[in-house]
């Protein structure tokens, strides 16, 4: 982590320039290097493939979630959407439907789930937090009604292999391929297109963006639908990865996703952040958990570590900003009467 108490003016200017997301990336690299060198059993291909495989569901949902948070909204129903998709997949499979039909249907389900969230937020002007807490319950509840107590496991082997297998003896799970493709698309869309720039504009100031001609509602609706689709796909992946379709699959995943995204420097107030940072945040948390398990750190201590990291990740940039502001004020002859609100 960069030392916040830098003294030299050059470094302090640099301190202002070094963004949180870059720091998270550096932290991830440092952690990986340390783990490869010092943690027994970490560095082999099998473990790294486990690490990637187990982190993929969070990483997948983090892509649209990061963009949604950039635009100033949030979706807490992602884990329930994934659970519902898993439950529907199980129920349809039990009903004898072909898996090649089921998966597109699950995608369609994701579209519907996203549309419900998006329309409630954009058409009625409701806060997305409240809406998606509601749909979090509703989607999970429907999943429970659809599949009930069943746990469906007998999916075709080639699909299960795709969900859980890896390329030969390398550290790359098969499922990393679709993820990398989606990541590339997401990075391009967020950072190199008009659409992406509009997302930042909407997150920074919705009013200003509207006056600048951004079609705010349509933009947000599109993001909610994408989030729904990716969540539903994650539900399919989860089902295949763990070879088990259950209504309670992925319960609580929304908190992990949000924690990772925020850790990666996406500002919860919208308008700031990069996808690279978000993905670094996801893998930082995933690697930490893997390493801590290998070092026999108990699950409880891991919970505390996650929480502390989350609080630091939102506190540190703000404190850093305030320090640099204070220093900037100290340099100017006449300090302004009221501090600009952060």
């Amino acid at each position: 982590m960069p030392d916040p108490t830098v003294k030299s003016p050059v470094l302090s200017r640099l301190g202002g320039a070094v963004r949180w997301d870059t720091s998270v990336g550096v932290l991830l690299v440092v952690l990986l290097i340390c783990s490869f060198s010092f943690v027994e059993n970490f560095g082999n291909a099998l473990n790294v493939s486990f690490l990637i495989g187990n982190t993929l569901p969070i990483a997948l949902i983090a892509l649209p979630m990061a963009m949604l948070v950039v635009s100033g909204e949030v979706d807490l129903s992602v884990a329930s959407t994934a659970g519902l998709s898993s439950a529907v997949m199980g129920a349809l499979w039990n009903a004898g439907m072909a898996i090649e039909t089921i998966i597109p249907l699950c995608v369609l389900l994701g579209v519907v789930c996203g549309l419900v969230n998006g329309l409630l937020v954009t058409r009625l002007g409701l806060p997305s937090l409240a809406v998606t807490i509601g749909t979090l319950g509703a989607y999970r509840g429907i999943a429970q009604i659809v599949l009930g107590s069943d746990s469906v496991t007998d999916f075709p082997v080639q699909y299960l292999d795709f969900g859980a297998g890896r390329f030969g003896d390398t550290f790359l799970p098969y499922a990393v391929v679709p993820f990398v493709i989606l990541l590339a698309i997401a990075v391009v869309v967020l950072h190199a297109t008009r659409f992406g720039r509009s997302l930042f504009a909407v997150g920074a100031s919705e009013e200003a963006a509207r006056f600048a001609g951004v079609r705010v509602k349509r933009l947000k609706l599109a993001m909610f639908v994408s989030t729904g689709v990716i969540s539903a796909l994650t539900g399919v992946f989860w089902t295949l990865h763990y070879a088990s379709a259950r209504y309670d699959n992925a319960t609580g995943l929304e908190l992990s996703v949000i924690a990772a995204v925020l850790l990666g420097g996406i500002d919860f107030d919208g308008g700031k952040g990069t996808l690279g940072g978000a993905i670094a945040g996801v893998f930082l948390l995933g690697t930490m958990q893997n390493v801590m398990s290998l070092l026999n750190v108990s699950a409880q201590s891991q919970t505390v570590a996650t929480g502390v990291l989350l609080v630091i990740s939102v506190l540190a940039p703000r404190i850093g900003r305030r320090i640099s502001q204070a220093r900037a004020r100290g340099r100017t002859a006449a300090p302004p009467l009221t501090a600009p609100s952060t």
Partner: peptide
């Protein structure tokens, strides 16, 4: 004091307090 979004902070303390509790 930190002027941090309440949702994020209390999500953090949710984890921390639960962790302390179970330890």
């Amino acid at each position: 004091l930190g002027k941090v979004p309440a949702l994020v902070v209390t999500l953090g303390t949710l984890y921390i307090v639960r962790g302390i509790d179970s330890i």
